[in-house]
């Protein structure tokens, strides 16, 4: 098992073999999670704190469940963005928490890089549960696991990522992961929601959805934030759905066995047709949720192993010196 990272801040810092290690271990947790007794002692005695500066029911629940199934003591800190007006409080909060000796810190924050900043200040392992528009590594890993289980591999696939690429950390982490695993990546978005310079990342850029979907193995839809729909970035919700909403007709341009993914929560009728989202022959959206728990268990397990090894080495050093 090769996974050397101390924190999981982004896919950017992971090597392909580390990504494979996470996915392999997650497979075992998928099996565990399907049993009646879903208990492991991988994190027994350890403390996991979830700090979500941005509200998220789904991701927080997924991390909480993952920690509990591994036997950790899990605490959810209620830190709404409003109560932490300034980042100095972010560092202060980090230092306060650090003094309580947590082992794993799961952090979501609205600013890109905030989780990196926090990781510099604490002694525990930090998991990025989404920072600004930067990265959401566990989402990309759970997407990779979902794809690997559905397609039998995570290389040499054509993956179309469609929607609000500019503001999406999910898109960024997936773009990096899929690139590292040598896939062909298509980015589809109205030009106002396409970040500049992405063509230099080795992705193909499309503003015509049908052309972008041509021959795709995987179609990954992104959530479009409500506040972007009112004329600032796109003219209207209905025009967006007409041009970029995934329906059966547009999906017909992808391969016949292409799978449909969405990180949730979905806006039915905005970025994805409701019937399609529920089509169990095409949609793997519910699988993504299941893989989410398993992948997060794998990540936390691996980080905890590294943490123990590091502390063990330190303790041994103390004795012999």
């Amino acid at each position: 098992m090769s996974f050397r990272a101390r924190h999981l801040l982004g896919i950017q810092h992971l090597a392909p073999d580390e990504i494979r290690s996470v996915l392999d271990l997650a497979e075992r947790y998928v099996d565990l999670n399907r049993r009646t007794v879903k208990q492991s002692d991988a994190l027994a005695g350890m403390t996991q704190i979830n700090m979500f500066f941005e509200n998220s029911t789904r991701t927080q629940a997924s991390f909480e469940l993952a920690g509990k199934r591994l036997g950790a003591d899990v605490m959810n800190m209620a830190v709404a963005q409003s109560s932490v007006k300034k980042g100095e409080t972010l560092i202060d909060t980090a230092l306060t928490l650090n003094a309580m000796h947590p082992d794993l810190l799961v952090v979501r924050h609205g600013s890109s890089g905030a989780v990196n900043l926090l990781a510099e200040k604490v002694n525990c392992a930090v998991l990025n549960a989404g920072d600004g528009r930067h990265e959401h590594p566990t989402q990309a890993l759970l997407d990779a696991l979902t794809i690997r289980r559905a397609k039998g591999r995570i290389q040499r696939l054509t993956v179309a990522i469609c929607g609000d690429i500019a503001h999406s950390r999910v898109a960024r982490s997936n773009l990096i992961l899929l690139g590292k695993m040598e896939n062909r990546i298509r980015l589809i978005a109205p030009p106002t929601l396409m970040p500049s310079g992405v063509d230099e990342f080795g992705a193909e850029v499309f503003d015509d959805m049908k052309a972008g979907l041509e021959g795709a193995d995987v179609v990954m839809m992104l959530r479009l934030q409500r506040e972007r729909m009112d004329g600032g970035f796109i003219p209207s919700e209905r025009e967006y759905f007409h041009r970029y909403g995934l329906d059966a007709e547009k999906l017909a341009h992808a391969k016949p066995d292409a799978i449909v993914m969405h990180p949730g929560p979905m806006n039915r009728g905005v970025e994805i047709d409701g019937t399609l989202a529920d089509d169990i022959n095409r949609s793997v959206i519910q699988d993504q949720v299941e893989m989410g728990v398993a992948v997060r268990m794998a990540c936390m397990d691996l980080l905890a192993r590294n943490l123990r090894a590091e502390r063990g080495a330190k303790a041994a050093g103390d004795i012999y010196v």
């Binding site: 950017q12 600004g132 960024r172 500049s196 992405v198």
Partner: peptide
């Protein structure tokens, strides 16, 4: 400044 680096870092850029 907008461009590849800004996009990679997820930071708002100016052209």
């Amino acid at each position: 400044t907008s461009g590849k680096f800004a996009s990679l870092m997820g930071l708002p850029g100016v052209h």
